[in-house]
Amino acid sequence: MSRLQIHDVSVVYPGLNNGEEVRALSNINFSIEPGEFVVALGASGCGKTTLLSLMAGFISPTDGYLTLGDNPVSGLPRVACGVDLQDQIAGPGKERGVVFQKHALLPWLNVLENTEFGLKLQGIGKSERRERAAAFLKLVGLEDFHNHPVYQLSGGMQQRVGIARALTNDPEMLLLDEPLGALDALTREVLQELLLDVWKETEKMMFFITHSVEEALFMASRLIIMSPRPGRITHEFKLDFNERFLECRDARKVKSMPEFIEMREKVLSIIHGDEQSGGMH
């Protein structure tokens, strides 16, 4: 596995109808190391989805570039890591799986077919891909919904299909854009633990966006806090609450530790300070 590096990246969106252009990200330098679980936290509009789209290769930066190991992800630098990357095609790839903020499922396929879709694209046989998809559907609690049309599911269930789909494809790196936002509190905790288990077991790199401070602290090996206008990373913390949970398997206990509560207050005060200085609209 190789690290994902973001080299001095800025993203400027052109303004609509000659409106002012939006500096969604400004001079981001940042990397995700192999096996790291990075969580991004920040008010809406601070560029979290933009950052994720860059990593996924869906958009190119206005300035700077991104690499995964020696390979370009987005942006076309002249020379990076000693390799001439000019003319290499960059973009999305199956080593970087994505769970979308808006699920992005395919309505003409049922739950099982959506989940196995990536394996089908790669030409993996029907029985094998069914088996792998079914295993992950069971993990996200949808074993009884294989043949349901996805457009008849609730938002939370659609989100879970999206997670099962990304996991079934077994990427090196998972990019998750508020994946648990539409879930009820109970399912949310179950899936937090599931994602941590998958992470521990496979040592995938994770980039996880959330609005919830508690979720961020619980999941992250490294927490980045972002601030809008222009979008930038203002704080970084190394954390180990996820490791503590994986040892004791008691989420409630971890979330009520004095260190956890102290950290939560600290992060909340950072975010609120941000709001007062005009971070929120």
Partner: peptide, 17 residues
Amino acid sequence: AIEQIHAAYSMGASRWQ
């Protein structure tokens, strides 16, 4: 929907797929 195209590419789809 562009998200669906993005989803397919990040699951390894070729342009033809």
